[in-house]
Simulated assay, not measured.
Amino acid sequence: MAHVWHVDGLRVGERRPPSARSAWFGLALATLCAASYVVALVLPYYANGFAGATQEELWAHDLTTVWPYGTALGLPIGLAGILAVTVGPFLAAGTLWWSGRTLWVHRGGLATPVRTVLTTTLLVSVGILSWLPTPMAGQLFSWFID
């Protein structure tokens, strides 16, 4: 029989349930991802009256001249847009995988507040990933990249 190492009363093969701090960190990442989509892509689309515009009509407007990109907030919002377009899908998939796996592996040993935060993280990540293949998201991505 193999020797089993003990660390803080747990065998090496066992994992501790995540703390509330790490669960909140995962929710913060998923919320950051969603907020970057809303602030950098959706907000300028609706605030400038582009709702219902075709792709050609949208491309006729330069993104740097519309609100809020033409203001002093243009640089931070542009950086949030770069985060949303480049890292956002991977961040949402990673938080979805982590929260789902954690809920499954520690299904009997999680405290109720931690389980609630992990479930919220899972739902936010599913919401982001289900919004990405929509026509509106594709239109906003191509408008931002253009």
Rank of each mutant, 00 (worst) to 15 (best):
G52L: 02
P89F: 07
G13W: 04
F50N: 03
G26V: 03
G13S: 05
R16T: 08
G78S: 15
V4Y: 03
I145C: 06
G100F: 05
Y69G: 02
G138Q: 02
S125Q: 06
F144V: 11
V7T: 07
D8Y: 06
E57R: 06
S125M: 07
V7S: 01
V124F: 15
P68L: 05
R107L: 00
T86V: 15
M136C: 05
G13K: 00
G88L: 07
V87R: 14
F50Y: 12
R15L: 01
G108P: 05
D62Y: 01
G109M: 01
C33L: 04
A47I: 05
S36P: 13
W131Y: 14
A35C: 07
R11D: 03
H3N: 11
A84V: 02
T64F: 13
G100S: 04
F90H: 00
A34S: 01
P17S: 05
L110P: 02
L129G: 06
T54I: 00
T102W: 10
V124Y: 12
C33P: 04
L75W: 07
P76K: 04
D8F: 13
L73S: 11
T71P: 03
L29F: 08
V39E: 15
V85L: 15
V12L: 13
W143C: 00
E14R: 11
G74L: 10
V7K: 04
T64S: 13
T86F: 12
A51W: 12
T64L: 14
T31H: 04
P135Q: 02
A92E: 03
F90S: 10
T31F: 08
V12E: 08
G74W: 03
G49A: 07
R107E: 09
S142R: 11
V85A: 15
G81M: 13
T102A: 11
L73N: 09
Y46D: 09
W131P: 02
P89Y: 06
L58M: 04
S19A: 12
Q139T: 14
W5Y: 05
G70Y: 10
D8N: 06
A23Y: 14
V126H: 08
L122Y: 09
M136L: 15
P44L: 08
T120P: 02
F144K: 02
G100D: 05
A80N: 12
L91V: 13
W59I: 08
F25N: 02
N48S: 14
D62K: 05
G49C: 09
P18E: 09
D146T: 05
W143A: 01
F50W: 02
S36Q: 14
L96F: 10
A60C: 01
W131V: 09
W24K: 14
T120D: 00
G81H: 13
P135C: 08
A137D: 13
A53N: 05
P135I: 01
A20M: 13
H6Y: 11
R11M: 07
L118V: 12
V7P: 04
V105E: 09
L83C: 11
T120V: 00
V38T: 13
F50R: 03
W131R: 08
A84T: 08
T134H: 03
G26S: 12
N48R: 11
W97R: 11
A51G: 15
L140R: 02
V4T: 08
I145L: 14
A111K: 14
T95M: 06
W131Q: 10
